[in-house]
Computed example of a mutant assay.
Amino acid sequence: MPPGAEVGFIEVDGGRVRALTAGEPTAPPIVLIHGGGTDNAAISWYRLIEPLGRTHRVIAVDLPGFGGTTGIPPVGGPWEQADLVARTMAAIGVEGAVAVGVSMGGDVALRLALRHPGVVDGLVLIAPCGLVPILRDRFAHGAAWLTTRLPERLLVALGGFTGRFTRSLMRAVVHDIATLPEPVIEEFAREATAPGASLAFVRYNLATIGRGTMLNYAMDEVASITAPTLFLHGEKDPLVPIDGSRRAAALMPDARLVSVPECGHLAHLEAHDRFLSEVIRFLDGIRR
């Protein structure tokens, strides 16, 4: 459990969304949206809930199929996930918040701003998905699409098998695994070996990887997002190219990109001090 976090559950869609919270209820709210794979709020935001809770009301949710959220089937694509986040915010009376998302969660935060602009006061997007037309190159994209044609049960089983090699997989995602807190690595490994742990991410991939293009490609839409936006992207990100964040930041009317050197896919964990200082400066600007 992240330092400073309290655990609560929110009744939504007949199930219970787990939320890790911190800060005063009357403080400006921040909604944190974790990434894909077998991530959850406790993993992604292990280092951030306590410091952000000093000035804000922090609400870090587990999306359906991840972490401690129960009773809600994994909803698939970022569009449905964004709608679920909006319903969760409404259920706890949060009318507007800064949405912070990483990777898949960055895709969800983008959709939240596009589909529910009235509830988004600002965006912090960490290596967000949804901003590249294909995965790396045509060959890699075609291979990924062919993989999604396999039966869902087999894809989940494959996810469970690869989960046994979590530490090796994480070395391929970050620039230097030594920058990650050991509890984060251990929790990733525990989540990865849980029965059916990869189902939610499998459904996200099924919803977003098309035959020749990414179905969640949002570059043509981002210019309509007027909320202040901060992109943070590791310059050595091996999963999501930084060019997508760079192009989106240039198209959006109130956005800027912070590129983090010697950093991979998880800038909020790998470069925590730099990330926190940039986010606090961004949040202070919104409050002013």
Rank of each mutant, 00 (worst) to 15 (best):
E95P: 01
P228L: 12
G35I: 05
I280T: 02
R115G: 06
A22F: 05
R16I: 00
A5R: 08
T148Y: 09
A19I: 00
R54I: 00
L232Y: 09
V85L: 06
V75M: 08
G96Q: 15
T208V: 10
E95A: 03
F282R: 13
V202L: 06
R87F: 10
F165L: 04
T148R: 07
G76S: 07
T88P: 05
C263Y: 11
S277T: 04
A227D: 08
G101E: 09
L125F: 15
A41H: 10
R18C: 02
S103L: 08
D254A: 10
I185Y: 10
G68I: 10
I49K: 03
N40V: 02
G106E: 09
L169P: 01
A227P: 06
S259M: 13
V279H: 08
L84M: 03
S44G: 12
G35V: 06
F161S: 00
G264T: 05
W79Y: 14
V12D: 02
A127T: 02
M252S: 03
G37D: 14
F188P: 00
E221R: 14
L150I: 00
L48V: 02
T26L: 02
G105V: 13
P28C: 10
E50H: 15
M170W: 15
G14C: 02
L146A: 10
L150V: 00
R211H: 14
A144E: 06
R87T: 02
F275I: 05
G285D: 11
D62S: 03
G15P: 07
L266E: 06
F282I: 06
A200D: 02
A197L: 11
D237P: 01
G159A: 09
L169I: 02
L123W: 12
G163F: 13
Q81A: 10
M89T: 00
P2H: 03
V75E: 06
P253E: 04
A143K: 09
T26R: 09
P253Y: 09
E6T: 03
I72V: 01
I126E: 10
R54Y: 05
T69S: 05
A99D: 02
A5D: 08
I286F: 15
L180S: 04
A82T: 12
P151G: 04
T193V: 11
D176T: 04
T69G: 00
H268A: 08
R115K: 11
V222T: 09
V240E: 14
Y217E: 07
G122E: 10
T70R: 07
D243A: 15
V100A: 06
E262N: 00
N205Q: 05
D83Y: 13
K236I: 00
